[in-house]
Design a binder for these strands. Structure first.
Lengths: 169, 169
DNA sequence: CCTAACCCGACCTTCCTGGTAGGATTTGTC
DNA sequence: GACAAATCCTACCAGGAAGGTCGGGTTAGG
């Protein structure tokens, strides 16, 4: 697998936020219920997005999260980068700023790294795909067949088993 | 990380075979020594390549492996596919031949999968990058000395450093 | 018949992923 | 002011896969 579930959950979370109007913050619980994801785990995911400046938050009652920018201006490479830490096809490509030796398997001296060209191209292909996709596109794609976004105002505070009922089938 | 070390080792192995003349098979031990990789592990790696029909082998004394086709005719998507099993950015995209639905986190009924569009594009970007690279290119690239490869390497139009982020722990 | 090599499957250990637990803090509402 | 709803933070943990190792079997040249 290429991306972890943090990326999957984080993108879903961003899409969910993109469906809301930013005036009213959306609580994590609403998102967790809508997507069927564990709330405690989502907290860790959204923390990465917040630290990356992609979402903003308000604490306390009626707090929640919202996009820090309009969805049209959020390219998905930022999102995935924030969630995954780095977009690297291979160990050697994770160059943190420290100076540690990254490519452990050097061939004979004088020869270049046999795989560098390949992974560089792959990385480029991935990043270009992500850059060329905006959050707004995903929101539109996800909402195409669907009903209204979950309104914070109209939301029934009690149990709303609609989603889980359909998920079982 | 996107690809496992099996992919790294397998590609190196293929490059090494591409450097040899196919008339004489190359023993795994020679490759293991040249690349500094554990022989026993390479055996597992090369088995995948053999089962995929990318290399051929001869047993017994003076046996070894060689490319089943010229390096110019081997696209790297075949190689990586053989080594990794499948090139899938997310769980949902690993479709074994059965047609079961693997996406466990369906949103509300009537809505499409929010992330499908994104991962489809990413997968396309990866596969295209791999298809457009032949083993022969890697052989040539590895044989070169200094880092002249600016003309060869695809340019990533990213303005910011791509894999520079720390892995947020 | 011995040795170099391929072939095969079982095992093992470490690390990361995915998730839980439990609390501390902030803030609107009654 | 008490309470509840929510964000925030850190530690912990179980399972599985990654990345190997090991031991042996089979094939073929000298």
């Amino acid at each position: 697998m290429i991306f972890s579930s943090k990326a999957e959950y984080g993108v879903r979370l961003m899409v969910e936020l993109g469906r809301q109007r930013p005036e009213q913050p959306t609580s994590l619980k609403a998102i967790a219920d809508a997507e069927g994801l564990p709330l405690a785990y989502l907290e860790q995911v959204v923390a990465k997005l917040r630290r990356a400046g992609l979402v903003m938050s308000a604490r306390g009652a009626h707090g929640g999260y919202w996009l820090s920018r309009p969805a049209e201006e959020i390219a998905m490479d930022e999102v995935v980068q924030a969630l995954e830490g780095s977009i690297a096809p291979m160990e050697c490509f994770v160059h943190d700023n420290t100076e540690r030796v990254l490519c452990s398997h050097q061939p004979d001296a004088g020869r270049g790294c046999a795989t560098k060209l390949l992974w560089t191209r792959v990385q480029g292909g991935i990043i270009r795909s992500l850059q060329n996709t905006t959050l707004a596109e995903l929101v539109q794609f996800a909402g195409r067949h669907g009903p209204e976004p979950v309104s914070v105002v109209e939301r029934v505070p009690a149990a709303e088993p609609v989603a889980s009922a359909f998920r079982a089938a």
